[in-house]
């Protein structure tokens, strides 16, 4: 009975190893074409990321929002709702969080944090509610509506910043009070000295585990998956499909707002336009690579976090954009190798 699971694990490990080797190889070729020595480049990345607490901390810092957004999106994806709107949802959430933390700073901490989180969540969730309700009532594909909602969100934030909230001649909000800031890990571990990684990293881990529990261990999670697999069957099983779709969309988009904890409350102290840098889209890849399993998402996020920070460390030698190429190659090779490995084992059985 456990055999199948073990085989599955073995398959996954084999396929990931092969794809990483493949990625290394392809990246090496690209670096060679640029005229650099790939071993030098990899050497720098490895020593920078793993050689110091700072480097490791930065990689964790980059991974944190990916874990949050990836786990949030996994909820939607399990319901077969292809939410491409995380970018807009998380920006609005983080933006509102920064405003709430600034304007309600008179509140005591035990009230302030819930208010900040709830408001951020509510706004992000609302941004998911619109495409969800259009899909449920009118059957319009959420792919199109969520993409459009991204544009609207960014334009709206831009407008609100310039008209009302931005600090003069910047694209950021006012800085929040220091006491509201989420402590950096370096406050507890000397090791991470200088790095921006903060307690949000643990919140992200907890979130991933919570989402995992919800999706794989609760009835609600099974309902979400049932709707995702087969809406007709779910209906005949007695599941209220529309309710499940709406809830997964609301929870999924709402949770993306938590990236605001990492950036606004944990790092800068304000919302800055463009902070997300396509986070909402990278998170889609992170989630899909992990087959929408939140525990897997922790690992794929860490990988992407390392690549992200690693790219910065070699920026002086090669363009940092090369790391985007690496990320894309990782995705392509994992997806294709996975298929090949799967087929191989299936034909062997």
């Amino acid at each position: 009975m456990e055999l199948r699971l073990k085989n599955k694990l073995r398959e996954n490990i084999i396929s990931i190893t092969i794809s990483l080797i493949l990625t290394l190889f392809i990246t090496s070729v690209i670096i060679l074409l640029i005229g650099k020595n790939p071993f030098d480049i990899f050497g720098i990345i490895i020593s920078e990321v793993f050689g110091s607490g700072y480097g490791l901390g930065q990689a964790l810092f980059k991974a944190t929002p990916l874990i949050i957004t990836g786990s949030a999106l996994a909820i939607c994806f399990h319901a077969s709702l292809f939410n491409i709107g995380a970018e807009g949802q998380l920006n609005l959430g983080a933006f509102v969080m920064s405003l709430a933390a600034f304007y309600f700073s008179a509140l005591p901490a035990y009230l302030l944090f819930p208010v900040v989180i709830i408001l951020g969540f509510a706004v992000s969730a609302f941004w998911g509610y619109i495409p969800a309700i259009i899909k449920i009532k009118k059957g319009v594909s959420e792919v199109i509506t969520t993409i459009m909602m991204n544009f609207i969100a960014m334009a709206l934030i831009n407008f609100l910043l310039i008209e009302f909230f931005a600090v003069k001649s910047t694209v950021r909000t006012e800085k929040i009070a220091d006491w509201i800031m989420i402590p950096k890990l370096s406050a507890y571990f000397q090791f991470f000295q200088g790095s921006s990684v903060n307690l949000t990293f643990f919140i992200a881990l907890a979130l991933a585990f919570a989402v995992y529990f919800m999706l794989y261990k609760t009835k609600f999670g099974y309902y979400i998956k049932a709707v995702g697999f087969n809406e007709t069957a779910a209906k005949y099983i007695g599941i209220k499909n529309n309710r499940i779709m709406l809830l997964s969309f609301l929870i999924g988009s709402g949770l993306t707002s938590l990236v605001g904890l990492n950036f606004v409350l944990g790092y800068k102290g304000y919302y800055e336009f463009g902070f997300s840098n396509n986070l909402g889209f990278t998170a889609i890849a992170v989630a899909l690579l992990a087959k929408n399993n939140p525990i897997g998402i922790i690992f794929t996020s860490l990988l992407f976090g390392m690549l992200d920070y690693g790219g910065l460390t070699v920026n002086t030698v090669i363009p940092k954009e090369i790391m985007f190429v690496v990320q894309a190659v990782v995705i392509l090779s994992i997806l294709s190798v996975d298929k090949i490995v799967n087929n191989y084992f299936q034909s062997k059985d």
Binding site: Y222, K225, A226, F229, N230, T232, A233, A234, K235, Y236, I237
Partner: peptide
């Protein structure tokens, strides 16, 4: 198959 069960479960 289409209505009675979630075949992936």
């Amino acid at each position: 198959i289409e209505k009675g069960m979630i075949k992936e479960f």
